[in-house]
Computed example of a mutant assay.
Amino acid sequence: MSRRTSTLAAAGLLVLTLVAVAMLLPVPYVTMRPGPTVDALGDYDGKPVLEVEGAKTYKTDGELRLTTVSVTRADSRVSLPQAFTAYFDPKEAVVPRDLVYPENQTAEESRQENAAQMASSKLTSEAAALTAAGYEVESVVEIAAVTEDGPSDGVLEVDDVLVAIDGTKVTGTDQAVKLVSSKKPGDVITLDIRRDGKDQTVKVTSEAATDDPSKARIGVSLGTDVELPFPITNNLGESIGGPSAGLVFALALYDMLTPGALTDGATVAGTGTIDAAGAVGPIGGIQQKLAGASSAGAKVFLVPDGNCAEAAASDDFGMRLVRVETLDDAVNALEKLSDDPKATVPTCS
């Protein structure tokens, strides 16, 4: 073999080696694929997804399916061939890793964040559904945290509902802070609270606020919550996380608590966050959720208004894409389609 031939062979081998190494090295991206769908009117792991106690429920029909996206785990890495394959698959997507997982976030931290978002989604969906169904839902101020060795340590507990401060009814977090800070440091403040459903009165000796010594503080952080008129159990568990199932949870509860069936036996899928007032918010992975819904047999897909442009530019897989901004929008559209599958409803176009 000549020197030139051997040099070319060595160079070729080096290039092949470098290419092989590059193919094995992870790239800073994650893949998104269609995840499982779950019928919120059905069962999950042998239990009803939603259970209502102490209120009349009505027979439902059809399916209301929440949709999910399967994303590369935080502790996994995507290779170049995997990213390349996903990029050219119309049902998948490749996105920068830091858009999904903040830098240095662990897999456990990601799981906890998704679980917290799902818990919040369950609560707001319940509040929205019950309000739409005609029930009274009370918004309350609760103790979110108690400062260790602070004035309220040993007196107040996390999740205590703050009912009144020195006889003034508490109506919001800002108002509660103003009521306390208007006192003088060292004043004894009387708090009416509700703990585990039982009302009681406690007293806390205030201290000076660190940022303004002229104002009082009691060493707690406040949050907002809602109190429902009867218990609702969501048995979905933590296998599915994030806030995007809120709209479908709310629809399923509304369907259970009101006469008639929203879907008239059809399979309807959807996605979207929801707040306690019923406003629907956009989500990520709409393309993958559309694909998953189609595979589950859905003919109608409820799309948050903020995702409509993206959904319209994607493959609709033969489904009717219904645009919704609120829970009322979704209910009205499904009622119209139940009466007439060809009815005119807001769409993504």
Rank of each mutant, 00 (worst) to 15 (best):
S182P: 12
K183E: 08
K183W: 12
K184S: 14
D187M: 11
V188I: 14
I189F: 09
I189Q: 10
I189D: 06
L191S: 03
D192I: 04
D192L: 09
I193L: 08
I193T: 04
R194Q: 09
R195C: 04
D196G: 11
D196S: 15
D196M: 15
G197T: 05
G197D: 05
D199W: 10
D199A: 12
Q200E: 13
Q200Y: 14
T201P: 09
V204I: 09
V204T: 02
V204G: 00
V204H: 12
T205A: 09
E207W: 15
A208I: 03
T210P: 11
T210G: 09
D211I: 00
D212I: 06
D212N: 04
S214D: 11
K215C: 15
G219D: 00
G219F: 00
V220F: 03
S221L: 15
S221A: 06
S221F: 14
G223E: 07
G223P: 14
G223T: 11
T224P: 13
T224E: 13
P229N: 10
P229T: 05
F230H: 02
F230G: 10
P231S: 10
P231F: 12
P231E: 04
T233R: 08
N234E: 03
N235F: 05
L236T: 01
E238I: 12
E238L: 06
S239P: 02
G242W: 01
P243E: 05
P243Y: 01
S244I: 05
S244E: 07
A245F: 00
G246L: 05
G246P: 02
L247I: 02
V248S: 06
F249P: 10
F249S: 15
A250M: 04
A250H: 08
A250P: 09
L251R: 02
L251Q: 00
A252S: 08
Y254N: 12
L257A: 13
T258Y: 04
T258W: 03
G260P: 07
G260W: 12
A261D: 03
A261L: 04
A261T: 01
L262D: 01
T263K: 07
G265R: 01
A266S: 07
A266H: 06
T267R: 14
V268F: 07
V268I: 02
V268Y: 01
A269S: 03
G270D: 00
T271M: 04
G272K: 04
G272T: 12
T273Q: 14
I274N: 05
I274W: 12
D275M: 14
D275H: 05
A277Q: 07
A277G: 07
G278Y: 13
A279I: 11
V280M: 04
G281M: 14
G281N: 06
P282S: 13
I283C: 11
I283F: 08
G284Y: 07
Q287W: 11
K289Y: 08
L290K: 02
A291Q: 09
G292R: 00
A293W: 02
S294I: 13
S294V: 14
S294H: 05
S295R: 09
G297N: 12
A298H: 09
A298Y: 08
A298W: 08
K299G: 11
V300T: 00
V300W: 00
F301K: 04
F301D: 00
V303R: 01
P304H: 08
P304S: 07
D305S: 12
G306S: 03
G306M: 05
N307R: 05
